[in-house]
Design a protein around this nucleic acid. Structure first.
Lengths: 342, 342
DNA sequence: TTGTAGGCGTTATCAA
DNA sequence: TTGATAACGCCTACAA
């Protein structure tokens, strides 16, 4: 049955007319019910129900000048890391009575820009964003346009925004220190593109730890990938297996868990014992890591906390005119599981 | 540096003033640039840039009566199945010049209701929703309020909405037929709660196939779970292992891939050969299924197509006043992989 | 080609 | 307690 209403949605004026009151009273029923007598309030509410009244948020916002929504422009909706961050942001928003909407840029600068532009036009209270390129001009343009923006899981060369991130250099160090402790003297770093700040940081931390252990630099083999997904992880596994056994690493530190899952899949398929012959450490500690066939050790990042902190910074900026940008850096920790523990 | 603008965002009036033209001209530059001479257009655009003008979408929408956004209220942002559906919807929206926003209900009726209410107030062009309870009253209230709504991946007892779903009875049949073909005569159905329409349908299909093969009803063992996630899958694996070996199923059909992943994880951990001693078939064919340590056979559902079809139905409803609700049912197909192929 | 003015639906101020 | 009215920022006739 295609029941579609022909008439436009009822407005406060319509409600006022059928309830026999003024629009002001209807508005009061909506916004300060206590200022209205019980009798008329009931009458108005009945009229609203009869007419199927739905308040027009555009008009409300235009007049009141205040929005009830927050937005998070995500890089990749398919990566559980980001959806966990979103959950954290959602919980912070909810406890403040705000609604969080998610937009996906799918790593595309144009989509990101389109989403952000529309959100600004909608005058959302603020925008969280994990940008395709944290130093891009699009973001720079945002500054000073009045919409608070917080950058999530990225840092930026200048200090034009609040940022919330994790100390990835430390994360890389933790992973490699763990492998060194377990006696590995030949380790692969799997990740890329190396141009990504995140990846570069993790590699730097890895190298720091490697050097601190007094191991020769060339024994930390870098396998660069073109993306941070499962497919690339599998391919890295193949490349690893193709190395001559003398020079083949006995452990791999992957720049994220999707790579680690791919690597593990290749190892299992090829009959390579994990961790017996190849130990694996991932990064992020997404749920699928601990739930893999061989539970994967991973550098845990506080995902929901990241989202929550970002939302809080955003609201602080929205509320406080004298706001100064802050840069929150969370500390990662290693979660050791079977994949690296023999 | 906390550079926060004190002054409110510039309006068309401000732009008009600094460009030395009227507001009508500014509006024309925005909406019909061809109606404006190149010279004044340039002057206006310069003024907009100087002032950091951002058009107020609330005002635009209030006046024009038309929104540029679509919304998808998702059940579980952490399940890759739904994020793939969202991707499909996003691509449809994008090709129509609309923006898609995502909201997560996290399987909570109250959140779902809050999101939907706000979206309606915002007069979005339409709402896609995978509801917590497809027969709930909240949805019924939506009907006739003017906002087109399409139900995704659920069906409903009445025909008050367009729906887009997959033939889950057939899906269940395909899974079990496959296992019967492979010679299994004792199979477990893992899924729940059985009250969920989806789960019930898949079980029904499974039973149909089982009966058609002439196998005794009690040899299809039902292991009910409390949710459709990895943890429950692991637990089901434990329960399966605890059965006496004579009556233990040699194969399991899981109501979704997260359960299948959990089940596989338990099997690998317990040293149970898959598929040698336990064959596994999942449902949905999310990316992680094929990428598991033992690639998991799964009943593939067209995820992106589902989202795309839903978005198209929604826009049809929004555009056509004489719209009649339709019910699209996609056909699933079995993807056989190692986990069931010996 | 550009300017003027009315109104979209709501809220808030001020009277009554 | 309730009613009348003036914005909010934009778009679109209609006039000039």
């Amino acid at each position: 049955m295609g029941i579609t209403r022909a008439e436009p949605i009822a407005s406060v004026k319509d409600v006022a007319a059928t309830a026999g009151v003024s629009v002001g009273t209807v508005s009061n029923v909506l916004n300060r019910p206590d200022r209205v007598s019980a009798a008329t309030r009931a009458r108005v509410q009945e009229a609203m129900a009869d007419l199927g009244f739905v308040r027009n948020e555009s008009a409300r916002q235009l007049r009141a000048g205040t929005s009830r929504t927050l937005a998070y422009v995500m890089l990749d909706i398919g990566n559980p890391f980001f959806t966990d961050v979103a959950r954290g942001a959602e919980s912070a928003a909810e406890s403040l009575g705000l609604s969080l909407v998610l937009c996906s840029s799918a790593s595309t600068a144009a989509r990101e820009a389109a989403h952000i532009a529309l959100l600004q036009q909608q005058r959302v209270q603020g925008i969280l964003v994990t940008p395709v390129d944290p130093d891009a001009a699009v973001l720079r343009d945002l500054r000073g346009n009045g919409t608070p923006v917080v950058i999530v899981d990225r840092t930026r060369s200048d200090s034009a925004f609040c940022t919330v991130a994790v100390d990835d250099v430390l994360g890389g160090r933790l992973a490699v220190e763990h492998l060194v402790d377990r006696g590995h003297t030949r380790v692969a770093f799997v990740g890329g593109p190396l141009g990504l700040g995140q990846v570069a940081d993790r590699l730097r931390g890895a190298r720091d730890a490697w050097a601190a252990a007094g191991l020769p630099r060339e024994a930390l083999v870098v396998l660069e990938t073109t993306a941070l997904d499962v497919t690339e992880g599998r391919y890295a596994g193949q490349r690893l297996a193709d190395l001559p056994s003398r020079s083949r690493p006995t452990a791999a530190f992957c720049a994220n868990d999707l790579l680690a899952l791919g690597l593990l899949q290749h190892a299992v398929g090829a009959g390579t014992p994990v961790p017996g012959r190849l130990a694996i450490v991932g990064y992020d500690d997404i749920g699928f890591a601990g739930a893999a066939a061989v539970p994967i050790s991973s550098v845990r990042r506080p995902r929901e906390e990241l989202g929550r902190a970002a939302a809080e910074l955003l609201l602080d900026e929205a509320a406080d005119p004298g706001h100064r940008h802050r840069h929150v850096l969370f500390t990662p920790e290693l979660v050791a599981r079977t994949s690296s523990l023999g």
